[in-house]
Design a protein around this nucleic acid. Structure first.
Lengths: 215, 215
DNA sequence: GTCTATATTAAGATAGAC
DNA sequence: GTCTATCTTAATATAGAC
């Protein structure tokens, strides 16, 4: 079985890139099975329905990403009495880049799926994530609070979602953004470069004081 | 003609809220016409196609929002030699809130449409906006550069998109976020409150220096 | 497990009477 | 301008042979 990837994997690979590119609704099973070079009926045989295929695609990424992130965060919290916000956000870099190895463009696809899962009708993601990875989410807030103890849990809640929005939108449209950067500024930047570019922005937002400051 | 809104407006009103809620693809013409209490065929009579209806919905918001924003920005640039970043971002508040008067939940719907226009396959928006409102976009960058002259045009490009991501995501999912805030923190916040809460975050990100800083 | 063939449903769009 | 009725296409899903 070294020869070729099995049908189930081929479907997952094709589905994830098409979902990320066109969204869930605009990606038909015919499109998926054609790209995967498998029979149309095999999706329902292996996954039961399109809905369950969507879940499987998202789950495959989360299963790789979440444990890696959890490791990094617990290590950071164990080692540093008061980590910097940059340290906390930098903990996301390796787990995100690890997705590149699982599938081509894995990092970008993962972020696009995150964004679509939040907005598209199929917003099961929030529920799925919190029930399956509640511990990791708790560790994220724990690390951020160690880095910035002045944050109230309310403020942390809001800023976490501001952060998520920036990250999802930026990485999700990274293809277009990198193209523009190349055309307008002759700037070559890859996914890792983009991640490292957005992190200071995120850290700054998480760090700012609530009061109206003079700038 | 004081009695009832005309068919065309009824369709636009129904379509915009459904598009914002379910996305373009997941909203059928049948759903729209049912909610608008008009005949199915009237969409094609008045707009030609679903695609053109989508454009019309977006255009109606932009036509109200963009001139208002332009006024604020030019006034700010004329009046202040070096406006603060908070001043620049505060210029968006009134134009955004003006959308509330055009249609119920207009502000949130507008931001949701912005987000969907960027991600959904129907990403004509970037083209439409730049060709129709290039002057306003230029004034946005002009104001930001006056407020933070240290920004290179490259950095400004990236941070503008970080900003857009935060705003679109936050406002677009504001319904869910406000519900959670109420349930978890007993915090009552409305759309204007949310806008005012995100602005310091945006200003901070736009202000931060590129260098790795100690935090 | 994989294939062909087909059932079923729902979508966008239009013709033509009023 | 508005309505009913219908055309055409494409989607998900399944039955049943191999």
């Amino acid at each position: 079985m070294v020869s070729k990837l099995d049908t189930k994997t081929r479907i997952l690979d094709a589905a994830e890139s098409l979902f990320a590119e066109h969204g869930f609704s605009d990606t038909s099973l015919r499109l998926i099975t054609t790209r995967a070079s498998v029979n149309l009926a095999s999706v329902n045989y292996h996954f039961g329905s399109k809905k369950e295929l969507i879940q499987a695609v998202i789950a495959r990424h989360l299963e790789l990403f979440m444990p890696l992130l959890n490791e990094k965060l617990t290590a950071l919290c164990a080692q540093a009495e008061k980590p910097s916000l940059l340290d906390v956000f930098n903990s996301f870099v390796d787990p995100l880049l690890a997705l590149e190895q699982q599938s081509k463009n894995g990092t970008v696809i993962f972020m696009q799926l995150l964004g679509r899962s939040y907005t598209d009708e199929q917003g099961h993601l929030r529920w799925y994530t919190t029930t399956h990875y509640g511990e990791v989410l708790a560790n994220i807030t724990k690390a951020l609070l160690k880095a910035n103890p002045a944050l109230s849990s309310q403020e942390l809640f809001w800023r976490l979602h501001f952060t998520l929005g920036t990250a999802v939108f930026t990485m999700g449209s990274s293809g277009a953004l990198m193209d523009i950067a190349k055309a307008d500024f002759n700037q070559d930047i890859d996914v890792e470069g983009l991640i490292r570019k957005v992190i200071p922005y995120l850290a700054s937002g998480m760090n700012t004081s609530t009061e109206t400051t003079s700038m």
